[in-house]
Design a protein around this nucleic acid. Structure first.
Lengths: 365, 365
DNA sequence: TTGAAAGCGTTACCAA
DNA sequence: TTGGTAACGCTTTCAA
């Protein structure tokens, strides 16, 4: 592959001039520009080597998006897709590329600084990064912070682990969750389950205590659970009638798998508040498969209003996913450009009532 | 920010040694390793500068994914998300990052090599790229080819515009489409519409001719249309009873907008073959809004079997989206590693019959 | 308007 | 096992 120097030599000009031609920068006579362009074409020189240019410039024109777990898993949630769409839209407008960075979960016995299992994260050529919904104890966070990159957090720890965030973007998770629970209460439900993917980093299934729930590893989960509890408290109901269950993962399958436990109990719940739409859709599917009508026998509420929810007629708490991506991207780009940044935007959440919730059926027994 | 050289100086060793410590490479005594690690920590050195390392190494550990149009638009299609998931899964496994590269559509009057509006594409620091479903006349293609990067095409031109593809990944679009059309035929439909997003690069709406259809800008669209026509031909039916309509864009809204024309004609169609699920979902929604039952008054078939389709009970042609991503990524990584590559994998497509198709209702008049 | 030259921060080869 | 030392390919003053 020809280099800029080759072109300079062949065209009989300096490398500085060739660089100027290719960067649109500066004053170059039309004659020289033409000669350089031609020579470049003849040599098959496609433009400055990006790695070299990045090194020299100190900027790359690419921002990273750090996604929880591995990329494949993260993109499986349509909510993540919507968020990315927002980030991408802003990136487009500012001619900034997007690199997806996987943040593996905490693993015990991390070796030296070299082979900690975060190679992509530590070596990615990016100007800054948006940290999307990663677990608070992920080793990715310190690794990123150590790099000294400008960082924007989305859906992340309230106290943010001391990371020097440029901005922390949040959603009214607690208020949205409260509205969801309030909705079920006002329909007449009094025995309801809360279904989370998992409370701790290690997946677990089955019923959990509220004490565990309050210590959930994810701040978003904590907030949502707190919101559900708020509604219960406001109604003067005991938390014993608001059971917390873990599905083990954030997927429709996991939601389906957890459904039996909800319905089979001695006194089954009449409603389920799920912390994500994918979980909720799994519950709906499993309930119907067991001939438990939704919402007749079981009301189901999701969270996120991901694209799937509307299709499925799922009552859910909508958060502006796309806008969240836009806000985060704009904050990061502003910081990179040295512009002032809103350090703590909070986006609204709102209940969207669809067909998956209704009054509880009166007990036939 | 401290550099590797600073660390070397402070620790009283050579830069080579520090480099070795941080790359796990080579033999470094435990004592030296410890001293270097400590010094680095003390200086706040987070590891080698990725841009510099990339320049020196000649590799980055990142592959690009070129998406049609702009990223925001592309990610709006859940099918793209599923594909990306596949690519990401392979990337994870091989510790390779993913950069999303936007490929703007053709625009007239492109200026010099510098400011052609493809900055991200021309400057992205990647080792190779997967070109996903981009238009055949996109300026992105020559720009990429000029860079001399190893390239894998997905859903791309049959003749591939002479680009030196490492591999071209295809799906049995034609066969899948034929099966879809055959399905409607066997249900008794004889007057059917084909709904595409658009045939040419410039968006257009309304009915089109088969002559236009055969010249569609996208090879995938051409293949699918050919498949529909195959079924018609095999049944001995005239193409005049298989109307081609353009929706103008690949979105549910566009599909909905095109629905009126399908139903309002003097002799309305009884079935619609859509080239994507999002279009199909738009048609279903719009038909129902006009009190045309699906499938009673109108049978609707999608394409892709994106995650939305199952939720909505849409009959569609399934293609292995995730696997497509995996195959493409593996091909590219193999090429980068100098391993042998299957240059022309073809993935299967299969009809998935759900609730959106049924026999045509007998005309009441 | 053009050129000379000094790095940007690494890695990898070869020698010690 | 460690160090010296060339590159890697470019951008950017500063001078001419």
């Amino acid at each position: 592959m020809a280099t800029l120097r080759d072109v300079a030599a062949a065209a009989g000009v300096s490398t500085a001039t060739v660089s100027n031609v290719f960067n649109g920068t500066g004053r170059v006579s039309e004659a020289v520009r033409a000669r350089v362009t031609e020579t470049a074409a003849a040599l098959g020189f496609a433009g400055p080597n990006p790695a070299a240019a990045s090194l020299r410039r100190g900027r790359v024109g690419i921002i990273g998006i750090v996604l929880a777990e591995n990329l494949g898993y993260a993109l499986g949630d349509p909510a993540a897709g919507a968020f990315l769409t927002g980030v991408a839209a802003v990136g487009d407008a500012e001619d900034v590329g997007l690199t997806l960075l996987p943040a593996p979960p905490a693993s015990p016995g991390a070796p030296g600084p070299a082979a900690r299992g975060l190679p992509t994260l530590e070596r990615a050529v990016v100007d800054g990064a948006i940290v999307y919904s990663i677990e608070e104890d992920s080793p990715a966070l310190p690794a990123l912070v150590a790099r000294g990159l400008p960082l924007v957090a989305v859906d992340s720890p309230r106290d943010a682990t001391g990371a020097p965030w440029v901005a922390v973007v949040r959603v009214q998770d607690r208020g949205g969750a409260q509205a969801a629970a309030q909705h079920l209460l006002s329909l007449g439900h009094r025995r309801v389950a809360v279904l989370v993917d998992r409370l701790a980093t290690a997946p677990a299934r089955g019923r959990a205590t509220w004490a565990d729930a309050r210590r959930a590893a994810s701040s978003v989960i904590r907030e949502r659970l707190a919101g559900y509890a708020d509604a219960w408290r406001a109604a003067g109901l005991p938390l014993s009638s608001l059971e917390v269950h873990q599905a083990g993962a954030n997927s429709a399958e996991a939601g389906a798998g957890a459904t039996a436990a909800l319905l089979a109990a001695p006194s089954p719940v009449t409603g389920v508040l799920c912390v994500s739409d994918v979980l909720a859709l799994g519950v709906v599917r499993a309930a119907q498969a067991r001939s438990a009508e939704v919402p007749g026998a079981l009301s189901v509420v999701g969270f996120d209003d991901s694209p799937l929810a509307a299709e499925a007629g799922l009552t859910t708490v909508a958060q502006p996913l796309r806008e969240k991506g836009e806000v985060a991207a704009r904050a990061l780009l502003a910081a990179l450009a040295g512009r002032p940044v809103d350090a703590a935007p909070v986006l609204p959440a709102r209940l969207v009532v669809r067909a998956s919730t209704g009054p509880p059926r009166v007990n036939r027994c």
